[in-house]
Structure formats: C-alpha cells, structure tokens
C-alpha cells in the first residue's frame, strides 16, 4: 500500500531512511499525508502535518493522519520549541516567501530539519536557460508566470544558507529519476534532500 508512494516521490525514500523508529515528526506542507502515513506505518512515527489546502486536509483526515490547517508563511508559532525530533519540508522550500525565517523556525521547533527541493542547477534546467527560457520539467512543471516557486536555488546556494544561518549539514542525498547521484551532484542531480541541525 505504501510502497508506490515512495516510488512516486523519490525524495520520500531518502527522508524515510533518516527517520528512526518511534521518532516525532512535523511535516510542513504535508499535502495528502502520504509521507506521514508511510512514516506512521513503517516507522511508528508520531507525526503531524501542516497543510493549507482544504482538499488535502480532507485526504489527511480520511487516512487518519494528524493534520493542522494553517499557513506556513505565518510562521510556526503554534508549535512549541523543541517539540519534535524532525521537521520536514519536502518540495515546499522553493515556494515559501519567508524562506530564511521558516528554515530558522524549523530548527526552533525540531531537533533536526529535513528539506528537499528541485535543484535549479541541474544541467537540463541550465540548458533551457541557455536556450533562452525558464526551465520546465517534472520537478518544475510551471510556466514562469504561474509558478508558485519564488525562491529557487541550487545545491550550493542551500549549503551557503545553512552556513550563513550557523546550521550544520548532517547528510545529503541527490537524486535524478529515482536514482542516487554521487558524481557532480550540483550539475547532475534534479532533486536534493538535506538533513541539518543547529551548530552547537
């Protein structure tokens, strides 16, 4: 039941691999709750999602996943400091307006943060830019004028942000078409997944 979910979203597999048994998890922009559902059944995680969309709220409740309706742009003031082992932001970072503030908030609420995002530096994206157009792909399926993605970045950009915010990167996976990439990740990887924590 849960395997196709992981196959359809390769970043989920990387994220799930990092979540230990029984961890507490907050999934920001949890969509239909499929990742939380997977973590609940496979990892016995104690999970909550935050989601803004009405239809997704219904899907989460239908599958018995805890979901809090809310807008991430308004911050995480509804969550106490240190309340979770992991705070996940999957394929949502690039669509947030107050990105820096949200990343900081993730590490206030959680011990560790996990982020996945489409790599703007992926060679197929660069090629489209060289040809004179904003890239359109499976990860970036929007036209420039209707995209929710206001803060696209490359792997190195994200690593720089972590450095600037005094955050330590603990682990990283770079994926293209469901396969892990180790060679020239900034150029050959279409999706990046990072695990990070505050510098102590």
């Amino acid at each position: 039941m849960t395997l196709p979910i992981i196959q359809s979203r390769p970043d989920f597999a990387a994220i799930a691999a990092w979540i230990p048994h029984g961890a507490s998890v907050l999934d920001l922009g949890c969509g239909d709750g499929s990742l939380l559902d997977y973590l609940k059944t496979e990892r016995e995680a104690r999970g909550y999602g935050v989601e803004i969309d009405d239809r997704n709220i219904l899907r989460c409740i239908a599958r018995g996943v805890n979901v809090i309706q809310g807008n991430l742009e308004e911050g995480l003031s509804g969550f106490e400091t240190g309340a979770f082992d992991f705070v996940i932001l999957s394929q949502t970072l690039q669509a947030t307006r107050h990105t820096e503030k949200l990343v900081r908030e993730m590490l206030r609420v959680g011990r560790e943060g996990i982020v996945s995002f489409p790599n703007f530096g992926y060679w197929k994206n660069l090629l489209q830019v060289l040809r004179g157009h904003m890239p359109i792909s499976d990860e970036l399926p929007y036209q420039w004028y209707d995209t929710p993605n206001v803060h696209l970045c490359t792997l190195r950009d994200f690593e720089q942000l972590c450095h600037d915010l005094s955050m330590q990167i603990l682990d990283q996976r770079v994926i293209t078409g469901g396969r892990e990439i180790s060679l020239l990740p900034n150029l050959l990887g279409s999706t990046a997944v990072y695990r990070f924590k505050r510098n102590t």
């Binding site: 709220i57 805890n66 809090i68 309706q69």
Partner: peptide, 9 residues
C-alpha cells in the same frame, strides 16, 4: 500538541 495527543484541526 504539547501533550502529544492525536489531533487534527
């Protein structure tokens, strides 16, 4: 949430 209850809102 503080009490780790199952909760949807």
């Amino acid at each position: 949430l503080h009490n780790r209850c199952n909760i949807s809102y």
